[in-house]
Amino acid sequence: MSDRIRLAFETVTKRFDHPRNGGLIVAIQGVDIRIADGERVALIGPSGCGKSTLLNLASGLDFPSEGRVRVDGVEVSGPNRQVAFMLQKDLLLPWRSILENVCFGQEIRGMSRAERRDKALAQLNRFRIADFAEAYPHQLSGGMRQRAALARTMMMDPDVLLLDEPFSALDAQTKLVLQADLARTLTESRKTSFLITHDLDEAVTLSDRVLVMSKRPGRIVREIIVDLPHRDEPLQRRRLPETARYTGELMNLLDIGHAELV
């Protein structure tokens, strides 16, 4: 980890037109986040607090109403090569084989057929789904599909991975395995990650830092440094008694148990 800032939100505010009454919705307000190279940051908050808006801003699909988003110090003016995202939905194209899906991004970027095929196969090997290279998405289980989505994201070789509840649609056991795969991959490739999640355990076990966002308009209300061992082994970290202390603190911050806002 170095001091170089990979992803920065500088007092970012985002407003949307209200779909019906013609007014404005303030999705996020005055958000300041700086994520250093190699750092793993998780963001939690109540539903509808604008977490996914942050991801769209970082990936250049949308732009802030106020403030700036920078990737590697450069203001984001559109989609760029430094970031790649992965969502809860795998977004695998049903008419493409798994291999072709993993190739998709580089195909658009113009990488040669042979090169992208080799690289995609390497990614499939890394995520242990090489046997399914020629299969179509509907033939795979949810966990394998999400692995393929992860492979497609890594195929872009981004500096920053934006992860929007990537495992929330999976069953509990598959989720644990994929979290471990993700942690290992992030370590091997020395990537920076920004993980948006509802899962407090996931936030604590996969991150160096957890940011807590308020309900709309979303602000960062708290930052918790996760000072726990087993950074690359979420399964080990999950077993630590201190992990429960962290998640307990997050539950209190989110007012879980005596609130209607989650």
């Binding site: 769209n56 990936s59 250049g60 699909l61 559109g78 989609p79 760029n80 090569r81 970031v83 790649a84 995202f85 969502l87 939905k89 977004l91 194209l93 998709f104 991004g105 658009i108 970027r109 872009m156």
Partner: peptide, 13 residues
């Protein structure tokens, strides 16, 4: 699904 289009857009399609 607009997310599919966004995926392609994120690759600068």
């Amino acid at each position: 699904d607009g997310a599919m289009v966004n995926l392609a857009r994120s690759f600068s399609a």
